[in-house]
Amino acid sequence: MKTPRLLRNKIAMAGLVLILLYVLMSVVSLFWLPFDPLAMHAEQILQQPSFATGHLFGTDEFGRDILSRIMKGTSVSFIISVSATALGAVIGIFMGVWAGYLGGKADNVIMRIADILFSFPSLLLAIFIMAVLGEHTYNVVLAIGIVYIPQFARISRGAIIALKGNEFIRAAKSNGAGRNYILAHHLLPNITAPLIVQISLSLSTAILLESALSFLGLGVQPPNPSWGNMLSSARKVMMFAPWTAVYPGLAIVLLVLGFNLLGDGLRDILDPRLRNVR
């Protein structure tokens, strides 16, 4: 029996293993944590990482266990990144598919909206949206989702334009297939490969954006743990307590690396031009 291409791709498997470790940590954090991530202990302020005390990653400037806060922050990062990516993907793909298939004025209007959103740097656009909507977790999801809309719109539009002139589309039209049927059964199934890759890469960027917004005080609000606000609070003590910044930063780096490796591997697997390169 032939091994699936995903299992044979070392890059994709390395990324998948990293992601699954974080998923496991997120699930475990729902039922068990080493310490209460919100509990403050004045007698345990800025303790170094130690097995003896049970604080494997040390404590922060309020005596809170850093490992527990990182584990709790994993769920926050996953929920926000997955929800925001899903929101941006659904709206962006809908816009791009109709723009590419209809063409003409509809294409111009839809893509000019996408171009306006694309003209702003991702972080600045997210900050602007948060400044307008206010500080709330739901608004973080909305802000990051809006940032992703033009990316998915452009990718799906380009893929639809490349496909809609093919013979099998003309054959479907000659057989009486309607527009919705062609979109659902012929076009959308054939553009899933680039969209899957984009979704995996967008998840990594969503984590970075959420962390950046929380770092700036616009995302998840203290005392609720988020990797971004943990890094923000660590700025005041990181010179003499570096573990307060190292471990949250490492958590971000490894999860982003996992999604990037998975996206790179999926690109190699799903793109027939790259299947024999590695």
Rank of each mutant, 00 (worst) to 15 (best):
L6I: 15
L6K: 02
R8H: 10
N9R: 07
L16C: 06
L18G: 05
I19E: 00
I19L: 08
L21F: 14
L21V: 14
Y22F: 15
S26H: 03
S26E: 08
S26P: 01
S29W: 03
F31S: 11
W32L: 10
F35C: 03
D36W: 13
P37I: 09
Q48V: 15
T53S: 15
L56H: 08
F57T: 02
D60I: 02
E61D: 15
F62R: 11
G63V: 03
D65E: 11
D65G: 07
D65H: 09
S68V: 10
R69H: 06
M71Q: 10
G73L: 04
V76L: 12
S77T: 12
F78C: 02
S81T: 05
S81N: 04
V82D: 01
V82H: 00
A84P: 03
A84K: 01
A89F: 14
G92R: 00
G96N: 04
G96D: 03
G100T: 03
K105A: 13
D107G: 01
D107Q: 09
D107L: 05
V109G: 06
M111Q: 10
A114L: 05
A114T: 09
L117H: 09
S119Q: 13
S119M: 10
F120A: 05
S122P: 03
I129P: 00
L133E: 07
G134P: 07
T137W: 12
T137Y: 13
Y138L: 15
V140D: 02
V141K: 00
V141A: 01
A143F: 07
A143T: 06
I144W: 04
V147W: 00
I149M: 08
Q151F: 13
Q151K: 14
R154L: 08
R154W: 04
R154G: 04
I155E: 01
R157V: 09
A162K: 13
A162V: 11
L163T: 11
N166Y: 14
E167F: 11
R170C: 03
A171K: 09
K173R: 15
S174R: 11
A177S: 14
A177D: 10
N180L: 15
I182D: 12
I182T: 11
H185L: 15
H186Q: 14
L188P: 01
N190Q: 12
N190M: 06
P194K: 01
L195Y: 01
L195D: 00
I196C: 08
V197W: 01
S200R: 05
L201Y: 12
S204N: 04
I207D: 00
L208H: 03
L209T: 07
E210M: 08
E210Q: 13
A212L: 11
L213W: 01
L213N: 03
S214H: 12
F215H: 04
L216C: 07
L216R: 02
G217K: 07
L218I: 08
G219Y: 05
V220C: 03
P225N: 12
W227M: 09
N229P: 07
S233Y: 05
V237P: 03
M238V: 13
M239A: 14
T244E: 05
T244Q: 06
A251H: 05
I252G: 01
I252V: 14
I252M: 09
V253I: 14
L254P: 00
L257Y: 12
F259Y: 11
L262M: 12
L262T: 00
L262D: 04
L262W: 02
G263F: 04
L266I: 07
D268P: 07
D268V: 09
I269D: 02
L270H: 05
L274D: 05
R275V: 11
N276V: 10
N276S: 14
